[in-house]
Design a protein around this nucleic acid. Structure first.
Lengths: 152, 152
DNA sequence: CAGAGGTAGTTGCATACGCAATAACTTGTC
DNA sequence: GACAAGTTATTGCGTATGCAACTACCTCTG
């Protein structure tokens, strides 16, 4: 079934477009602070995930799953780069000799903590402050529905 | 000022993370239908923007601005590829000889209309149906605030 | 109308990424 | 316990992307 031109302005497309645009717009505002410390967005996300983990380490596959958009292949290379600048180390997994951990180093933790203040300021200015307390709760709940329904 | 580990779980990061994750999750669900017709997400977005335009054409710079995430350089190459498969043609701009239009071809319109039905079905299943009428309106309004506040 | 300064689009170059194939290992089954 | 089937992570290869430099053109100012 071929669509007609009227379908191009369907409300579903508008709503989805708003989601993509809002995410892209917010992401853009956070890039400078992250790049200022020599990181890419992806690298920062990986380091942040590790930093939020109790032992500061995750299996490669766990980390890949936790991140919003990366393949195993991409993660191998990302961790290669992070390892080469000393922010992460690979550690053998005792229980499965195929697997390995990405382990945040002290230096890696330092860089995360160095980015965070400006990152929070960015998010505060370009997201948090735009909304009332009630709206923040509404938005988070609605986004959670979408995310959970489409989780990997 | 260095951050403390407590800041890693700040509500601002949680809310922003939810936005990024919801967008990424929804985008993933739409990829197969788009790739099934030999397009990338970016290519589809460009074609869709052109299709929604009265004359089905936009200046390169206008198209670059309308898209969620692309540089002029990236757009040049994207339009190169679309042109090479006949979905787009470059047209000279009469009023400014530096500029050029990206003009959707009939074949380009065909492929957009061919993708749309399944694309709408994807969005319906993975976004629209998850929400009540009221929630759709709320979500769109909230996202619009974020987008507009951070527009280019 | 000459020239300085800005803008539109393209290109060289370096990098990042995904897919598919691969190696190494684990798990389940008989 | 041996082998088939699945899983984990990595790599070769082709492609997409951004930055910075560049060309061509426009516009504004005097």
């Amino acid at each position: 079934m071929r669509a007609s031109v009227d379908d191009l302005d369907d409300d579903r497309i508008t709503l989805a477009g708003m989601l993509f645009e809002a995410a892209a717009a917010l992401e853009r505002t956070t890039v400078p602070s992250i790049e200022a410390l020599g990181l890419t967005t992806q690298a920062f996300e990986a380091l942040l995930r590790l930093a939020r983990t109790p032992e500061h380490r995750l299996r490669m596959s766990e980390l890949a799953n936790a991140m919003t958009s990366i393949t195993p292949s991409g993660l191998t290379r990302l961790v290669d780069r992070l390892e080469s600048v000393g922010y992460v180390e690979r550690a053998m997994c005792p229980s499965d000799r195929r697997g390995s951990f990405a382990q945040l180093t002290e230096s890696g933790m330092d860089v995360v903590l160095a980015v965070i203040p400006q990152h929070l300021a960015d998010l505060d200015e370009h997201l948090w402050r735009l909304l009332t307390v009630r709206q923040r709760g509404e938005l988070e709940a609605l986004l959670r529905v979408v995310r959970d329904a489409n989780a990997r």
